[in-house]
Amino acid sequence: MLSVVALTAFSNASAEGLGPFIPKAKGEQCVEPTQVMRERHWEFILHQRDETMYKGIRTTRHSLKNCLECHVQPDEEGRFPRSSEMSHFCTSCHVFAGIRVDCFECHADRPHEAYSIIPRHSRLSLNDLFRRRSVQ
């Protein structure tokens, strides 16, 4: 459903240029050359995933968390995009490529710093939303 909406959004965007919208990242250079990342980023993340999960290896170079640290940046109002939005780095490209990822069903979709600026009550209001639904 999300991808359908996003695809529509993208088809409008792509009228202006070829390729997906790539939000600006922090820093000047990624942990690997851009072309290598385009072709193999999923291998790096997958490898790191199992290394972290089973061996407790928590190097940041190829970790999903580290991707988000640079690639998910706040807009002018200081708001970080969510993975459900086309302005999110991962979502933008994955919708373009037509490949669904489920990382963010479980993983945080924003860098560490996003959490320190989210007021606690905004999370609680989400709880209230759930609660209302459960009452029905």
């Binding site: 407790g56 928590r58 988000l68 969510r82 479980c106 945080a108 989400l126 759930f130």
Partner: peptide, 30 residues
């Protein structure tokens, strides 16, 4: 039992999986 959207970076969790105490493995590794 439901979709989650407010997971923290050190505590990934989501619908359809089973979970339990991790003995704060993120703290232990740190």
């Amino acid at each position: 039992h439901e979709n989650l959207t407010e997971q923290l970076p050190h505590a990934p969790r989501g619908k359809g999986c089973v979970e339990s105490c991790t003995m704060c493995v993120h703290k232990v590794d740190a």
